[in-house]
Design a protein around this nucleic acid. Structure first.
Lengths: 322, 322
DNA sequence: CTGAAAGCGCTTACAG
DNA sequence: CTGAAAGCGCTTACAG
C-alpha cells in the first residue's frame, strides 16, 4: 500500500505528542485547541510534509468540496472558455473542479457522470450530449439541457438564428438561404434548426427541403461536404447559415463565393479570410453564470430554473458586408 | 450526511441476504463466489441502483485508478489536443483522468498538484509552468519539464526554431530577423530563445539586442505590441519568428507587411489571412506518448528518460511563399 | 464458497 | 482544552 510511504495524521500526532483528534482540530484551526498546541502541530505537520488524504476526509465528511464538469469537447473554444468561467467562480468558493470530456457521445457521457458520482462530487455542471440521467446530485446545465433540468443557462438559440437570417435577408437581400448545422437532437440542435425554419418564414422566404443539411460526427468535414453539395444543386443557395463554428470553418473550406454567417464564433474569426460574421456568446460568462447557479443550489437555495442568455451579432465580411 | 440517501454495499448485502464481503466479491466477479449468488447480488445491486463509493474503495485499496493531468491552459489548442491524446491512452487502460488548469501560474500549479496528490491519483502528466515540486507520485512531463524530471516527452525546440529561421534566411533571403516569444524561463521558453540566437548565428546573421522581444502575461496582446514596437525601430526587422501561436496572432494583428513564421500552429492556420507558416507538432500524439510512458512507469517499469519529438515545417503564405 | 473482523485515514459527537 | 471511540463505505487476509 502506498500509504506506507506517506505521512498520515497519526504520524503527526505521534511526533507532536498529542492525539489524532487534536491534530485534526489543530490543522482545521479550530478554536477548541490551545494556541501553543496548535502551533506545535502545524510545525510538526510542515516538517513531516503532511498532506491530508482527501479521500479519507471526504469519506468521513460526506462531502468532497469538488464539482464535476461535463463537456462535449474540451478542445472546442466555446467549452474551453465556459470551463474557465466555471473554474473562476467555483474555485473562489473553495471547490475544486473535475473535468470530463465526452467527445459528444451519449455513452461516454453516462460513464463520465457515473465516474463523477462515484467520486461523490457535491455538484455537477453539465453540457449534455444526451447521456444524462438523474444522478441524485445537484446539477446545473449549460448550453444544452436535459429535459428534466431544473436549473440551466442556455443560449437564446432561436433568437440568435433569427438575427443571422434577418441580416442576410434584409441587409443583403438574400432569398435563397440554406442551413448547415447540428443534427436535430433535443436541445440546442433542434432549437437552432427550428429557429432557422421559423426565421426563414418570418422573412417571407421559401425553404426547399434540400436547403437544410445536417451533419453527424465530424463537423468540420461535414460542413465542407454539405456546403459543396448545396452549391452543386440546380438552384444553389446564395447564403449559408452555419449552426456552429466548425460547420462554418468547413463551409469556408468548400467555398468562398457564398455568403456565410455562423452561430458560434470561430477562434480568430476576425483574422480568417474572409472574416466571419457570427454571434457573440459571452462564453466565459456563460460558464460563470452556470457555476453561480450551482453554488446557490449547493448553498441550499431553490433550483434556479432556466435562464436564456441573449446573443449579439458581430458583423464582419463573410456575409457580404463592407 | 448524504450517505443516508445513497444505497451502499451493506444495503445490497442485507437485501440479497449475504454478507458485505460476498457482495464485494460478487460485484468484482471474483471466481471465489458461487455463480447463483453472483447473479443474485448483481440483480439486487441493479435493482437498488447501487453505485460503489470510489472514495471508500480507493481509500481501502490505496489506489485510485485515476491519473491527474496538469496543463497551463485547457483552452489553448495545443494543450487541448495533447489532453485528448492522454485521454485516449489512459482510459483504454482503465484509468480516469482528472484535469487541472493552471493559467500558466506557478502558484496555481502548486495548488493543482497538491489537490491531485491529496486525491491520491496514481500518476501525473504535467506540462509545468514552474510550480512543480516532487509529489512522491509517478510523473511524466510533456511540453515543458521540471529540472528533476526523469520521464518527459518534449518538443525539439532548438531544431524547430532553426527550421523557421533557416527558411526565412535561405529561401527568402531575410537578414533582419526578430524574435517575439515567451519569457526565457527554464524549459521551452529558454530553449526556443537560445535556439533562436543559435540559429541566427548559424545563418551568419547579426542579432541586435532589440530584435529579441519577450512577452509576459497576455501573449496575444504582447505579440501585437511587441511587433508594433519592432516595426517602429529605425532599422526594423523584415521577418519575425513567433515563439508561440498567440504571439503569431498578435503579430498578425499589428501588421501584415512583415514576414511571419510561428513555432506553434494557430487553429485554422490555413484559413487565416495570410495563412501562417508554422511547425507541425503532432499535438495529440505528444499527449498519447506521455500517457504511454506513464503507464509504463505505473506498470513498474523504469523511468523512461527524456524523449524529443521532431517538428516539421508547414509552409504557407505568411513567410512570403507563393 | 462464505462470513466476521480488521483497517484504509480521516472527523466529530461524547466524556472528561 | 484533550483524548478514546465510533464510523464513513469499502476490501481482503484469515478462518471455516
Amino acid at each position: 500500500l502506498s500509504s506506507a510511504f506517506r505521512t498520515t495524521l497519526s504520524d503527526v500526532a505521534r511526533e507532536a505528542g498529542v492525539s489524532p483528534a487534536t491534530v485534526s482540530r489543530a490543522l482545521a484551526n479550530s478554536p477548541l485547541v490551545n494556541e501553543r498546541t496548535r502551533q506545535r502541530v502545524w510545525e510538526v505537520a510542515e516538517r513531516l510534509r503532511f498532506r491530508p488524504n482527501r479521500l479519507a476526509s471526504s469519506l468521513r465528511r460526506g462531502a468532497t468540496l469538488a464539482v464535476g464538469v461535463v463537456v462535449p469537447d474540451v478542445a472546442a473554444r466555446f467549452y474551453a472558455a465556459a470551463l474557465k468561467g466555471v473554474h473562476d467562480v467555483v474555485e473562489a468558493a473553495g471547490y475544486h473542479v473535475l473535468v470530463v470530456n465526452t467527445e459528444r457521445d451519449a455513452r461516454r457521457e453516462r460513464e463520465a457522470l457515473d465516474f463523477l458520482r462515484a467520486y461523490q462530487v457535491d455538484g455537477l455542471v453539465v453540457a449534455t450530449s444526451g447521456g444524462y440521467g438523474d444522478m441524485g446530485v445537484p446539477t446545473v446545465f449549460f448550453d444544452n439541457a436535459a429535459p428534466e433540468a431544473s436549473a440551466a443557462v442556455l443560449l437564446d438559440n432561436e433568437d440568435g438564428i433569427f438575427q443571422l437570417v434577418w441580416h442576410l435577408a434584409t441587409v443583403h437581400g438574400h432569398e435563397r438561404i440554406a442551413y448547415v448545422g447540428l443534427p436535430a437532437s433535443p436541445g440546442a440542435g433542434r432549437e437552432r434548426l427550428e429557429g432557422f425554419r421559423a426565421a426563414v418564414g418570418r422573412c417571407g422566404l421559401a425553404l426547399p427541403p434540400q436547403y437544410v443539411a445536417l451533419g453527424t460526427s465530424d463537423w468540420e468535414r461535414d460542413g465542407r461536404d454539405l456546403t459543396a453539395a448545396l452549391l452543386a444543386l440546380e438552384e444553389p443557395p446564395t447564403a449559408i447559415v452555419a449552426g456552429a463554428d466548425l460547420f462554418a470553418i468547413g463551409a469556408l473550406r468548400a467555398a468562398r463565393e457564398v455568403a456565410l454567417v455562423s452561430f458560434d464564433e470561430p477562434e480568430f474569426a476576425d483574422l480568417l479570410e474572409p472574416s466571419v460574421t457570427s454571434l457573440d456568446r459571452h462564453d466565459r460568462q456563460l460558464g460563470r453564470r452556470a457555476a453561480e447557479l450551482l453554488l446557490e443550489v449547493l448553498g441550499g437555495g431553490a433550483p434556479a430554473g432556466i435562464e436564456r442568455v441573449p446573443l449579439s451579432l458581430t458583423v464582419r465580411r463573410s456575409c457580404g458586408c463592407e
